[in-house]
Amino acid sequence: MTALETSGVGQGSAVDANASAAGPRPVTPVTNHKRRDNIRKWGEITLFVGPALVLFLTFVVYPVISAARYSFYKWNGVSQFSDAEFIGFENYARALFGGTDPDLKQAFTTQYSQPFWEALGHNFAIIGLSMAVQLPLALLIALTLNRKFPGRPSVRVIMFAPYVLSEVIAGVMWLIIFDPNGIATDFMHSIGLNPPAGGWLEDQTWAFWVVFFIITWKYIGLAIILFLAGLSGVPEDLQEAASIDGASWWQVQWRINIPLIGPTIRIWAFLSLIGSIQLFDMVWVLNQGGTTGQYSTIATYMMQIGFFRSDWGYGSAIAVIMFFISFAVAVAYMLVVLRNDNTDRIRKAR
């Protein structure tokens, strides 16, 4: 998301720069005006960008650099940082493969490296499942809601409602539903089945799937709304022409609508990808990733170890790893998948 915004801003300013360079003003050789314009330009830039830049540097760039610095130290967050011991890449090694100390490798692998990879695995499983489950489901609902029928606005609102709810409120609501004595358990009993033995949100097999169900419920509204917005931009005459030529409803969707909202789908996939890597709040509210990390994500794992166990150096290393994964995935996706969309847009702009 950030990368996307940044690139958007970059393109915008590049276009502006070209426009002013190619504009008619330089033809008039009035140096005084030019200087005044220059001062005004910089004044405006400072006025409009300055406060945001200060905030960005203070609350984004500085903490990122600090985290990177902490990640090279053994630091418990209580003692003075100046007393912390510099241990190089040891925190990274502990997370990735159990560290470099042969005496501790076995213990660190089981206690730190395995939970780290499990958490990361959950993130990537959610990415895969989002594409495999949420995408077709959202597309199907969007295509259905794109047809005119009585009560369509209400259905659209209902579909979008979970996305608008705060994560914490939605999480607490599902906690109550999946409580050991909650309505989900009662429902299972009423149809003669048993709920998962360890509890809906704790069972070693089921917890992850229950959480994925909740995530899908929560975030599918965004996909539907995006796809509907994309579909509203598809020219109706194309669909009418296809219908006149004898294309069925399915053929119209498959051959016209879906290909034409391709860029929207790819943007949603990008947002979903980044969101899945950074997934935290909902999982945290649902008992912090599970008592044994059944549905931990890289962000909840970082919070558990870094913050609650006061292992700040290690937690910072996890944060930096997460930053690089998000960054690499975002850049790769932009270069490989979104490149055509961006090139198209630039070509159209010209």
């Binding site: 360890g198 070693q204 166990r309 006061s310």
Partner: peptide, 18 residues
Amino acid sequence: PNVGGAMNDGIVGMFGGQ
């Protein structure tokens, strides 16, 4: 918090059969 947290996590893992 560090060793104590690891201990609590380990114990609840036993409650979870892990």
